[in-house]
Computed example of a mutant assay.
Amino acid sequence: MSWFIHKEDIPYISAGAKFLSSGGGGDTKIAAYLLLSAMEEDDVIEVKTAVEMADDWVVPVAAAGSTVLMKEDLPTGEEIVKALKKYEAVSGRKADAVISMEIGGINA
Rank of each mutant, 00 (worst) to 15 (best):
D43C: 10
K94V: 12
A83C: 10
A95D: 07
A17T: 06
L74W: 06
A64F: 14
Y87V: 12
P60Q: 01
K94N: 13
D27C: 11
K82D: 15
T49D: 02
A54W: 02
G65I: 10
L34Y: 00
S66C: 14
V61F: 11
Y12K: 13
L84H: 13
A97M: 11
V58K: 03
D96K: 08
P11C: 05
D56C: 07
K86Y: 12
T76F: 06
K29C: 12
V58Y: 05
W57F: 12
V44S: 00
S66D: 14
E78S: 14
H6L: 03
A38T: 13
E8K: 05
I99M: 04
E88D: 11
I106S: 15
A62G: 09
D43F: 13
G105W: 00
D56W: 02
K94C: 10
A63K: 09
G105M: 10
G26P: 14
K82S: 12
M70Q: 13
A108I: 09
T28Y: 04
E102Y: 00
K18I: 01
G26L: 09
S100E: 07
S2G: 00
L69K: 08
M53A: 01
A108E: 11
S100P: 12
D43Y: 10
I5L: 02
M39V: 12
L35D: 00
A31F: 00
E41Q: 14
M101Y: 05
E72W: 10
G23H: 14
S22Y: 10
I5C: 02
R93S: 15
D56P: 06
T67Q: 04
E79T: 14
H6F: 05
G92D: 13
I45F: 01
S91W: 07
E40I: 05
G105Q: 07
A31L: 08
V51M: 05
D96P: 08
V58F: 07
K86N: 15
K18T: 07
W57C: 12
S37W: 09
A95V: 11
K48R: 15
L35C: 04
K85F: 12
A63I: 14
V61D: 03
V44Y: 06
M70P: 09
S21D: 09
A64T: 11
E102S: 00
A38V: 04
G105S: 13
K18A: 11
T67R: 04
A15I: 09
D27I: 07
S21M: 07
S22E: 10
P60D: 01
E41T: 12
S21Y: 02
V98Y: 04
A15D: 14
M53C: 09
I103Y: 02
Y33C: 07
S22L: 11
T76W: 05
D73P: 05
W57A: 11
I30M: 01
V90K: 15
D27E: 15
S91K: 13
I13A: 02
I10F: 02
A32K: 02
A38C: 01
A17H: 10
A64C: 04
I13Y: 06
M1T: 15
I99Y: 03
V44Q: 02
A89P: 06
M53W: 00
A83K: 04
S22H: 12
A83W: 09
T76R: 04
A38K: 03
G26W: 00
G23N: 13
G25V: 09
F4K: 00
